[in-house]
Design a protein around this nucleic acid. Structure first.
Length: 829
RNA sequence: GCGGGCGUGAUGAAAUUGGUAAACAUGCUGGCUUUAGGUGCCAGUGCUCGAAAGAGCUUGGGGGUUCGAGUCCCUCCGCCCGCACCA
């Protein structure tokens, strides 16, 4: 025996698949298009090519590839493409450090990723490969930008934005975590800058509503997005400052507490603030407070348990429900980004307002009775956030606060002082970056015409070569004078190009559509091709993209549908969020020195072992810790399967008649069909690959136990052959090279062209079954009985058992429970 | 604080509708093969008592429903993830 040689086997099949372009599929209307087959779009999130792929990538593509293979063998025409999210900061930061242009380093990484994906044997349609940093791709990223611009969905405005001093760029809200840059961990600061935004807030409602259109998404991902969008219902109520004649609308979720408002607060960034205090005694104090707030980081401002600070404005507003004048303050616990940047403060029923009122000695008033009868009406139980009857609220007294809520809003609306309102936490998506390595924003600034979009026929706006990649507070593109200086496409006069580039999340928000028609030079995609393949039937990736990428891509699909170039509202019908692979219980990182290099394991054990191990570690959605012993265990199993094949291959076998087979041959055959059944069900039940593989292991174990006896007869040999080929067939989605090799040796055909096996119901059922006998729910014996034995027969057998009678002696059986095929339970007293 | 997830042997984990807890794998122990080591094959391995037969106990803790609970209900504890001065 020559032993399991994964290297030789894997090289052989990878060559076959590459030469024959096995995994390529054609679009409708193209030669080779399979009209009869239902389509299935299986997609893993595209990798950011940096250095070498890591085990996280291996897991994503091992899981996705298993699904792709499974679907193909169920008769689907599976499209399974691959590409690279190749614009981005790491390559650029590397360029700043080493001087090597980002393009060179990126293309080297792509090369390495491509090679390893091939070595892993992933069944990719390479004819559709793309990279987002190529002009052929970002030309269409720019094209999409222009369409959004035309539809008012891309706009430029000056706004306070989050600036990362280290990466020297602004960031989207989603890319700031706890006041720090999501990428490098540096504290962000606020700056006021003119920036490009996408109007994702217009889509807040649809992004929420269309969760209903999704088939299978993990509940927690939906929840995270729902929280992020942060819809809250309430009312907008207008308070007026008579002294200066300005209206201050506020958003509140508690209009029922309006009578309890005892003061009013503006955010430090509130635009009308200057005007309010100019020339008043409060001016200096307010200016100072605002300046101090501006200096503080977002993280410090949001710190937990922070003392409430603020300054009185010396002005007041009128509460529209009772005409009362209440004092105005500026305080940093009110955020300009949320609501209207102003609040009515109800210290009796809001904790934050309560804390502020305590510090500033402001009145605290109860307007809703508490639930505790002892303190329902006095000030002991304040602040009280719950429900109850209204009090101190004029004509609403005695009503439940929920009813009063509706009536107060209706009344305000009549008076023109308020209306129902819905507020979102979601902000518009800030897409400009003051960095080099991204798609240039395709607009031109003309003194005469203003912002002028670059015409479609002048795309792509190519990224110019520059000498210095280091950002100087503005994009390195600004230094490319020749490139910046252009002429206005509208009037022909000298004009300047936009020097910011687009957030890389823009690139990855539509790549899955480009795959469908990747070489199209006249359009981003052919509409028929997109309509045919979309939506993605199964999307696979890490949960770290739950909000950013997945929400942006959902927004893009809707926006593109509105633009009229796409036919789906939701790009990803089913999402599978895989768990992380850890080492020694910790996230892998270079600084920790606990990384696992897939290449090393592929070299030592082969890709089949590495892939199968990853799928065997546990349910793929769960985090799992890498263990070298586990890899060896899986390698041992694949070797066992291989040796079984080598052993039976040369033996002569008889034709098998499943109906006539008896004895061990039948036992093994039945086991094979059990494995088919189990594997098929578990595969579909949430991709429980670990138990699929365990079932194949059981089959191989049984074959080993029975084979020596079976080899005596040609029928027995046939049974072992069948078990071996079945094991190869079932393990194929995880170990495609080994599966294909064994199948070819035993059956002479190509495994991936064979339909997924179906279990023979005849062989799944057995004549006799083992039943458990319990007395008072405790296991006492097991009995063999005919599968169709009647209840009386089962009870007789159970009572006859010696092990059972011991527990029945001197007792009275008060109840007999019989579950056919499972158990008998005798209840005694 | 709000939302979501999880808690089962020495370890990774199984357990379709409530019906044999611990499949499969790792690790460990023993046997066979081998000059030896490794590999390979076979067997054993939840805990306690017991020489054994056997008995009792066991799914984070406590309680409940049921003939029967890892699974359903209540309650408490612990860990992980997301959001968080969001009006």
């Amino acid at each position: 025996m020559s032993g399991y040689d994964p290297k030789a086997i894997e090289r052989k099949w990878q060559q076959v698949w590459a030469e024959e372009k096995t995994w390529e599929v054609a679009n409708p209307g193209q030669p080779g298009y399979e009209a009869a087959k239902p389509k299935s779009y299986v997609l893993e999130m595209l990798p950011y090519p940096s250095g070498e792929p890591h085990v996280g990538h291996l897991k994503t593509y091992a899981v996705g590839d298993a699904i792709a293979h499974f679907r193909r063998r169920h008769g689907f025409e599976v499209i399974h493409p691959m590409g690279y999210d190749s614009f981005g900061l790491p390559a650029e930061n590397n360029a700043i450090k080493t001087g090597e242009p980002p393009r060179a380093a990126t293309e080297r990484s792509i090369e390495s990723f491509r090679r390893q994906f091939r070595e892993w044997g992933i069944s990719i349609d390479w004819s559709r490969e793309l990279a987002t940093h190529t002009p052929e791709y970002y030309r269409w990223t720019q094209w999409i930008f222009l369409r959004l611009f035309e539809h008012g969905l891309a706009y430029r405005t000056e706004a306070p934005v989050q600036w990362c001093p280290k990466d020297a760029t602004v960031l989207a809200n989603e890319q700031v975590v706890d006041g720090r840059c999501e990428r490098c961990g540096t504290e962000v600061v606020q700056r006021k800058l003119k920036q490009w935004f996408f109007k994702i807030t217009d889509y807040a409602e649809r992004l929420l509503a269309d969760f209903d259109r999704l088939e299978t998404w993990p509940e927690h991902v939906i929840t995270m997005q729902r929280n992020w969008i942060g819809r809250s219902e309430g009312a907008e109520v207008v308070f007026r400052c008579e002294e200066v004649g300005v209206d201050f609308p506020v958003f509140t979720t508690r209009p029922d507490t309006l009578f309890g408002a005892t003061f009013f607060v503006l955010a430090p960034e509130y635009p009308a603030l200057d005007r309010l205090v100019a020339g008043t005694p409060a001016e200096d104090a307010v200016r100072e407070y605002v300046a101090k707030a501006a200096r503080e980081s977002a993280e410090d401002r949001g710190a937990e348990g922070r003392e409430k600070t603020g300054v009185s404005l010396g002005r007041s507003v009128v509460n529209p429900v009772n005409g009362e004048e209440i004092p105005m303050f500026v305080a940093d616990y009110v955020l300009m980004e949320y609501g209207t940047g102003a609040i009515m403060a109800v210290p009796g029923h809001d904790e934050r307002d309560y804390a502020f009122a305590k510090s500033f000695n402001l009145p605290i008033r109860r307007v809703i009775e508490g639930s505790d009868p002892e303190t329902a009406r006095d000030d002991e139980g304040l602040p009280y956030p719950g429900d109850g009857p209204m009090t101190g609220s004029g004509r609403f007294d005695g009503k439940g606060n929920r009813d009063a809520y509706e009536e107060i809003v209706a009344w305000l609306a009549e008076e023109g002082r308020g209306k129902t309102s819905v507020n979102y936490r979601l902000r518009d998506w800030l897409v400009s970056r003051q960095r080099y390595w991204g798609a240039p924003i395709p607009v031109v600034y003309c003194e005469q015409c203003g912002i002028v979009p670059v015409p479609d026929d002048q795309l792509p706006v190519e990224l110019p070569e520059v000498d210095d990649y280091a950002p100087q507070g503005k994009s390195p593109l600004a230094a490319a004078e020749e490139w910046v200086a252009t002429e206005c496409p509208r009037c022909g006069k000298p004009a300047r190009r936009e020097t910011d580039t687009m957030d890389t999340f823009v690139d990855s928000s539509w790549y899955f559509i480009r795959y469908l028609d990747p070489r199209n030079e006249g359009a981003p995609w052919d509409r028929d091709a997109a309509d045919h393949w979309l939506p993605v039937d199964q999307y696979i990736g890490g949960v770290e993209h739950a909000i950013l990428h997945l929400m942006y891509a959902r927004f893009f699909a809707k926006a593109l549908a509105d633009v009229g170039v796409l036919g789906v509202q939701e790009p990803f019908a089913n999402l599978f969020a895989q768990g992380m692979i850890t080492r020694d219980g910790a996230k892998m990182s270079k600084s920790r020195g606990n990384t696992v290099s897939p290449a090393e394991y592929v070299e030592r054990y082969g890709a089949d072992t590495a892939r199968t191990y990853i799928c065997f570690m546990g349910p793929p959605e769960r985090d799992a810790d890498w263990a070298d012993e586990g890899v060896e265990g899986v390698n041992r199993f694949l070797s066992r399967l291989w040796r079984l094949c080598e052993e039976v291959e040369p033996m002569s076998a008889a034709e098998l008649d499943p109906a006539a087979v008896r004895g061990d041959a039948r036992t093994l055959l039945a086991k094979a069909h059990w494995a088919i059944d189990k594997a098929s069900r578990d595969f579909q039940r949430g991709f429980q690959f670990n138990t699929v593989i365990a079932a194949v292991m059981e089959l191989v174990n049984d074959a080993y136990r029975l084979k020596d006896g079976l080899y005596a007869e040609a029928e027995g040999v046939a049974a072992v052959r069948f078990a071996t080929a079945t094991a190869a067939s079932l393990i194929f989605p995880f170990a495609p090279h080994l599966g294909a090799e064994i199948w070819e040796r035993l059956n002479g055909t190509r495994l991936w062209e064979q339909a997924w096996p179906e279990a023979d119901a005849e062989l799944l059922s057995t004549d006799s079954v083992t039943l458990v006998v319990q007395v008072n729910g405790k296991l006492r014996d097991r009995i063999e009985a005919a599968a169709d034995a009647p209840r009386e027969e089962l009870l007789r057998l159970a009572r006859e058992s010696e092990k059972v009678t011991r527990f029945l002696d001197g007792k009275e059986v008060v109840k007999e429970v019989v579950v056919p095929g499972k158990l008998v339970n005798l209840v005694v007293r």
